[in-house]
């Protein structure tokens, strides 16, 4: 069965591109530009990997990370951010983030990271 990935970013292009790239890699990808709706979906379904933007309206990436860690310990989270400060990076690492991607995202690197995260 294909591994499932949820992508949360309020930038539509990011959602569209990651979905395109990762689908072609054979993953089952769902994308959300609305973090609230994404969280509801996470509650419904256990994804194998969560890719989330850090700075978002309503619920930010750090909150998503905490919720995922709480609901599904062991599920890996990749964090994307437009510009990261050291503080947010440290906080994310403390919450056991799998990887930390500063924008602009290199598709090849993202692919590699996703592969690593999902190879048990």
């Amino acid at each position: 069965m294909a591994k499932s990935i949820i992508v949360i970013d309020d930038e539509e292009v990011v959602c569209k591109m990651t979905k395109m790239v990762l689908s072609k890699e054979g993953y089952d990808v769902e994308t959300f530009t609305d973090s609230k709706k994404a969280l509801e979906r996470i509650k419904e379904k256990k994804f194998d990997l969560v890719i989330t933007d850090l700075k978002m309206e309503d619920i930010d990436g750090m909150e998503i990370l905490r919720r995922v860690n709480h609901l599904y310990p062991g599920t890996k989270v990749i964090m994307i951010t437009a510009y990261a400060t050291l503080d947010t990076a440290i906080e994310a690492l403390r919450e056991r983030v799998f990887d930390f991607f500063p924008k602009p995202i290199k598709i090849e690197e993202l692919k590699k990271s996703v592969k690593e995260a999902l190879s048990d």
């Binding site: 930038e11 292009v13 990011v14 591109m17 395109m20 437009a82 510009y83 924008k103 995202i105």
Partner: peptide
């Protein structure tokens, strides 16, 4: 930086995807 970061990232991803 933040305002420009997002569209720049989008362009970069689109261009990379387009080429790949």
């Amino acid at each position: 930086a933040h305002e420009l970061g997002n569209p720049l990232n989008n362009i970069s991803m689109l261009a990379e995807g387009y080429l790949s």
